[in-house]
Write a protein that binds this DNA or RNA. Sequence first.
DNA 1: GAGCACTGC
Length: 636
Amino acid sequence: VDSGEDLLRAITQHQILVIEGETGSGKTTQIPQYLMEDVRLHSRRNEIGCTQPRRVAAMSVAARVAEETGVKLGNEVGYSIRFEDCTSERTVLKYMTDGMLLREFLTEPDLASYSVVIIDEAHERTLHTDILFGLIKDIARFRSDLKVLVASATLDTERFSCFFDDAPVFRIPGRRFPVDIFYTKAPEADYLEACVVSVLQIHVTQAPGDCLVFLTGQEEIEACCEMLQERCRRLGSKIAELVVLPIYANLPSDMQAKIFSPTPPGARKVVVATNIAETSLTIDGIIYVIDPGFCKQKSYNARTGMESLIVTPCSRASANQRAGRAGRVAAGKCFRLYTAWAFKHEMEETTIPEIQRTNLGNVVLLLKSLGINDLIHFDFMDPPPHETLVLALEQLYALGALNHLGELTKMGRRMAELPVDPMLSKMILASEQYKCSEEVLTIAAMLSVNNSIFYRPKDKVVHADNARMNFTVPGGDHLVLLNVYNQSGFSTQWCYENFIQFRSMRRARDVRDQLEGLMERIEVEVVSSLEDSVPIRKVTGYFYHTARLSKGGYKTVKHQQTVYVHPNSSLFEEQPRWLIYHELVFTTKEFMRQVIEIDSGWLLEVAPHYYKSKELEDSSSKKMPRKQGKTKDELG
DNA sequence: GAGCACTGC
């Protein structure tokens, strides 16, 4: 940054400032250093906090700034991410994940220990960043000494400025190489085939430089890599060597690492990637980008409480981010496999912010515990759908976290301490009474590790499925997960032999350790039920998501939706009469994932306020009672 | 009988 003095002047004059700058403009590393050196802003020994959407970014930026300023990482400059606090009493500049700062509001609602808060990569609009916007705007009103910087890429800075009461926008010039963009003349019917043809054309006709292809998921990536390899084999020595490498988040780490090895002389590297290469990792040497213009996006239907993952055209902002990946080391080229007209008229300007596409159970609980009672009127930059808030409130009421006035209960206050979904925190708290907290902690940790524990490579499907069957125990999937956790011993060798994802296991262990560490604070004693699965089944998944067998499928007890047991479930063939599911996902059908068998009588024992014996009668021919429970207005 | 983009506390 050339204009450090100007920037400092602007910061002294305004409480909130929006900073617009491309990645590579040095805003993330330089600005906090200017602030640190400036005595006007730093007469008090308060911290400068700088949030990042990703853990690795927080760590690596902190390491770089520590090096540049010649201090030891963790002293004056440090970072704080889940499972890892690398700060000390001397820390002045702290890089952290946005979720971490959000959690800090629970212990320090006015962020008193900070003199400056920087929200970096604001344009990404992560769920946590969006909540921070509302909270920070609010505290800035009474903390006039707090400086707030909102740093974003070029897009949307006007909207940020507008949201923060017309805060001035300070622009920092970027340093990036130009990228030429090419469109197709007509739409492509088969974009996978078009990708393969484009890669080969680049390989044969273009100057040296590696190539990056954006696809939507594992299956597409595998298909594309196979097609490329097959055609290169057929062309044989007529063309130079092409090194084809897949990358996606679920790929085992040793295979991921291959994309970073240098391209052999005379050869060309092609990396076939998901969106992981759009923001999360950067590959050096990319000169060509091929963009078919699609991505998989999560969406959430609050009327049914169901999530789904759908292939959608990506936004113009996302397409531009992808193109930018070609211009990091030299001038590059981006080949878009859609027409210029489609780019202009058919693609959205920006991606829909996450807050509008996700379940908000834990966010609502967090805001309630910060004393924000009227969520409908909370200052969201883009408010979530009304139904999403209503469903979250309904769920929290059912779990006993809110009373009928929508106020936080003592139970809710304890639940908010745990960094997991409300259903999981409720079951952990309930496990105390049923003397099985030891097991329930493990189950909660395993359920909160979203991506699959079971590794199922295409060429070893039979082996993988056999390995998985060996973990089957009576009762349901929660107990299978508990069994896997207890057997694993966290050995890479064991995981490999049993087709278990080691990364997921390590994560489950970290989560479990963290949760166990919080048990004292919420006054839950850690005890084991010793082999008895009944108490575990009474509390796991908790009673909120129940379904009963009903001609060929299941019906949810509270909303009478037709749903099915997922074919990967250990209960797929058993089809028990009553069960509890952890989540609903819509793919080819409405599926319940992670289910456990229960006795309907338990529901009256565990949740008498929520179930009436009439709803639990077993004569399926009988007309179902009308929906009971609280209405929207009562919950407000 | 399915098929899981990416993050984060």
